[in-house]
Design a protein around this nucleic acid. Structure first.
Lengths: 175, 175
DNA sequence: CGACACATGTAACACGTTACATGATTTG
DNA sequence: CAAATCATGTAACGTGTTACATGTGTCG
């Protein structure tokens, strides 16, 4: 529900056109998460269906101005006020590794190393970007990079841990 | 595509019934990610549609045995062989914080602290579970806990970083 | 017999996402 | 004028997810 609530949050600031929301969203998220403009409109339609936003008819000037409703503000406040989902979302990488281990006949180490390589590469890109960012102006972008970097670091740590645990278990089949 | 590929991977080991796949999946992922059995069947139907699995008709004994196809094995190998999605998935927490900052009129610190509290709580639960796990038998479960813990730790670090960066920027409005 | 695990499946909906069609306005 | 940007929207599809309906077998 990121896009949904993201747009709601933007509209809480001031009414806007669908097209503008796309730009705002991308500016705020430093273009790390591009948003297809079509998705803005589908999402707005769903928000309208749920009574969280309204828009004047486009009849007059072919551009609709979207506004958040009272219910919308309540929903937004609830979103802000409650921590992001309590139980862990399905993690594709973890599932991949776990089923690979369970399968037995798969070269798990190769998977781990390939993933590690890819993740470290992304990590370096982001670290590079971070050095070039201006802490005064690009605060949001910087925070975003921090998030990506910390996540990637955690992933690398986990991959290493997997290898270690596997090695520690594996001593069998060989002298 | 976690469920989809997860089931495919399980079927690569040996043919199975839909119901059994549910149990296998949950056993392997330590019941951290329960899988509604209905989803198993919808997913199997989609895999069948895509030619990645086949199943005999249930006509005979009302239980269908699902098998992976050659295309299925190819797809699975591709999944194993390529790192998990290159560009970062939309991160609800990051988006929440970024739009909250952009909004200006939202108490970001409260959001950060509420989230921190919730995350630390989960962290402690998982750490407790980890202490009780047997490294010999519950290897998969242990790895899963490691993943959750490392992720949560990264999240906490990020939340702290956000607060710090905000504090560092904020010195205004007060003597 | 009654509860529980085994077993299958459909219908409906959620959000996310892309591709496509269309037009107005601005600017080089 | 042509290209880019602004602007709106629909159609279609993907996975994930839940609720519901249905039946068999087994064990206490």
């Amino acid at each position: 529900m990121s896009v949904r609530h993201g747009l709601l949050a933007l509209l809480a600031g001031e009414p806007a056109h669908g097209y503008g929301l796309k730009s705002d969203f991308e500016r705020i998220t430093g273009s790390a998460w591009p948003l297809n403009v079509g998705q803005v409109y589908t999402t707005l339609a769903r928000l309208e269906r749920d009574g969280l936003v309204t828009a004047g008819d486009a009849a007059d000037d072919s551009s609709r101005t979207w506004r958040i409703t009272r219910d919308g503000r309540a929903e937004l406040a609830a979103w802000y006020g409650s921590p992001v989902d309590d139980r862990p979302a399905r993690d594709e990488l973890a599932i991949k590794v776990l089923v690979a281990i369970a399968a037995g006949s798969v070269d798990v180490t190769r998977i781990l190393q390939a993933q590690r390589k890819a993740t470290v590469e992304r990590l370096q890109e982001w670290t590079r970007s971070k050095r070039q960012a201006d802490p005064e102006h690009d605060l949001a972008f910087l925070l975003l990079l921090d998030a990506l970097i910390l996540k990637a670091e955690a992933e690398v740590k986990w991959l290493d841990l997997c290898e270690e645990r596997l090695r520690r278990r594996k001593p069998r089949g060989r002298a």
